[in-house]
């Protein structure tokens, strides 16, 4: 039997934080698979382990137990250089707090991952401008984050996440700090990226609007997967709620 290629695969991932004498089990054995091009939302109440799971998938933190595979590569086996390469090329990150580098302009933020990747200046400037145009901010290229609104900053962050054509975009509460309308615009933008570019989008979120666009929703509670719902089922359950 030919095994399907998964862009992300988690195998019984556990994460325990030790704070003084307290042990907090943030993740209690999570296993899941995500295929190329899927739009996945990770939902759950605060403290359920969403962000911890996000950090595991993004190779930003090491699991206490279990394995994380990105493009079928075991992340725990990578050295610092390979890990940096993976974060630079394979994954684009979007955060609730935007996390743009304050000292840099929009275009400099967008081109930074390409500089790390060793792209030539002409090429990265051209692509940076193209990406800013894609998110509708070409005219604001030379503005610093402090001169941009929240929604604009998040769009710069999305352009930055796309810089090295990653296979995965990881978004941690991307609409958490935005008003309803701007949040909806960001979700629309992410959806169109997933559809047109075939990028896998994994988003930890509280935002019910995300459900509409997701292929699957993973519900997390107390560090465990409560249920995974696919799109067709979602329609029904959301319909019932409404």
């Amino acid at each position: 039997m030919k095994r399907e290629h998964f862009v992300v695969r988690l195998n019984n991932v556990r994460k325990t934080f030790v704070m003084g004498n307290n042990r907090v089990d943030a993740l209690k054995g999570i296993s899941m698979e995500i295929a190329q091009g899927e739009y996945i939302s990770i939902m759950g109440p605060s403290g359920s382990g969403k962000t911890t799971l996000f950090n595991m998938i993004g190779a930003l933190d090491k699991p206490s137990e279990g394995r994380v595979f990105i493009d079928e590569v075991d992340v725990s086996q990578l050295d610092a250089y390979e890990l940096a390469w993976l974060r630079c090329h394979k994954i684009g990150y979007i955060f609730q707090t935007f996390n743009l580098i304050q000292a840099m302009t929009a275009i400099e933020n967008v081109t930074l991952p390409m500089i790390f990747a060793g792209v030539h200046r002409d090429e990265y400037m051209e692509k940076g401008m193209m990406l800013l145009e894609l998110v509708g901010l070409k005219e604001r290229a030379w503005h610093r984050p402090s001169e941009l609104s929240g929604g604009q900053q998040q769009r710069v962050a999305i352009a930055r996440a796309l810089a090295n054509d990653p296979a995965i975009i990881l978004a941690d509460e991307p609409t958490g700090n935005l008003d309803l309308k701007t949040g909806a615009e960001i979700i629309k933008l992410l959806k169109s990226l997933s559809r047109e570019r075939g990028v896998t989008i994994i988003s930890a979120t509280h935002d019910i609007k995300m459900i509409d666009v997701s292929d699957r929703v993973v519900w997390i509670r107390d560090g465990m997967i409560e249920r995974i719902e696919s799109r067709d089922k979602l329609k029904v359950s959301v319909g019932e709620v409404a």
Binding site: A80, W85, R87, Y93, N99, L100, P113, A117, N164
Partner: peptide, 16 residues
Amino acid sequence: FREIGTMKCLGALDTF
């Protein structure tokens, strides 16, 4: 710290 974390997410090595 947050800026440093962001840079590392974008692929920066510790030495950068």
